[in-house]
Design a protein around this nucleic acid. Structure first.
Lengths: 235, 235
DNA sequence: ACCTGAACACCGTTCAAGT
DNA sequence: ACCTGAACACCGTTCAAGT
């Protein structure tokens, strides 16, 4: 209300303008507070005007995902499948880190847009070019899951409270008693005995650790000529 | 309005009753349609009455997660870490499959309840009992991520449309041209040449495939005496 | 034919008025 | 002191009335 755009619609509304405004709004204040009404206001437009460019809010979210996925650097290089996949996933991660809301929205989409299919297709292609069978590639894509977008859902968050430094010591002691293993890890000291109490942890390191663990596993199965033999064995 | 509970509150409202009614409601019609108002109506109570037992909707959702996590069969046995973890995760999966909404709600929680901490603590304990270092256990828990709750976010969904059988053949042909790798996998034939077009895929198989891949990787690192050496190498 | 204000059917939560 | 109806400040979307 205070900073509503003063312009008469000099640039006419378009799907693109709607989508990128929505992305900016989500970047600024999160998806949960993104509403059709606020978006319209931001664009200096009556709410119903949006419905000329997106059928409903779901389609708006679909479009926002497309904008994000379109940002992912897809510049491949003539390297081996493993480096190619690794590079692509880490590129996706760079984008996703800039749009923290995108993680949740990607997960919530039920249908896949051409942009998303394109992305998946080229990633599958990397494994196939590396000589992976259709069978193995299929399972490998499942195992990769949302990591192919460069994120994991961090259900395990390290510090039991959000800011361990501010938790009073008697509470910490009580927690260490009830949840000894959780606290041991949250308060871990590293191998050299140097204490790194409550320093949180390096997300990028954790991400690459798990990614490489999976990629190494994929490579091993591929080299062994692994096959699921589903129909023969269990159907 | 049509089947509102006729009873005067014979059983007085309690946190437990509120939570389990919420779980039932979510089971029946999904979380997205679970509202404080509908829940109150289901319990034959005025909306505001709920706020005596839960501070707000967020706390309601927290409580619902506790109910679900509490259902997980935690009956351990004196087996090796790998079987113990595997068994626990698959037990969690059984529960999660019965409450499809729980996946999304667990992911959305920002704070961890005692019930959740308890669950995580005992899982960490399994690795520690297996001789894993604090360091390795830490990374391994991250790599496990939400798989420790028995689910993955199925971003990769196999069939590009939801019901491939109903997609007209000319559309299929067009898609095969644009997304050859995606279609190849969706339409995969197994090794013996027997066609399994569009049969979808076995979620349980995929889940166990990825879980075992990770567990095998963990085992290998453990046997190698892997350590992150973070402070030495990069800090 | 296009555009849009008002309205509809919802939300979660506050708050003051009733007991 | 407790309980709760009405109200507030929102939603996404429909629809009919205006141009």
């Amino acid at each position: 209300m205070v900073q509503q755009k003063d312009n008469a619609p000099r640039t006419p509304l378009s799907r693109e303008r709607v989508l990128s405004a929505a992305v900016v709004l989500a970047d600024q204040s999160g998806v949960e507070s993104l509403s059709m009404r606020k978006l319209a206001q931001e664009l200096g437009v009556v709410p119903m005007a949006l419905y000329k460019h997106v059928a409903n809010k779901e389609e708006l979210l679909d479009g926002m995902v497309d904008v994000i996925v379109g940002e992912i650097d897809t510049g491949a290089s003539g390297v081996d499948w493993k480096s190619a996949v690794r590079q692509r996933v880490l590129a996706a991660r760079q984008i996703l880190l800039r749009h923290p809301w995108a993680r949740r929205v990607i997960e919530s989409r039920t249908s896949k847009s051409p942009v998303v299919l394109e992305y998946m297709d080229s990633m599958i292609g990397m494994f196939r070019s590396g000589g992976f069978s259709v069978d193995l590639t299929h399972h490998v894509m499942h195992a990769l899951g949302s990591r192919m977008w460069g994120f994991t859902q961090e259900v395990f968050d390290d510090d039991p409270a959000s800011a361990p430094a501010e938790v009073p010591p008697e509470i910490l002691r009580a927690m260490a008693e009830r949840y000894p293993h959780v606290m041991e890890i949250a308060m871990r000291a590293d191998h050299d005995g140097e204490s790194v109490v409550g320093q949180g942890c390096d997300d990028q390191f954790e991400f690459e650790f798990a990614l490489d663990l999976l990629l190494d596993g994929f490579e091993r199965l591929h080299q062994q000529g692994w096959t699921s033999r589903r129909s023969a064995a269990q159907r």
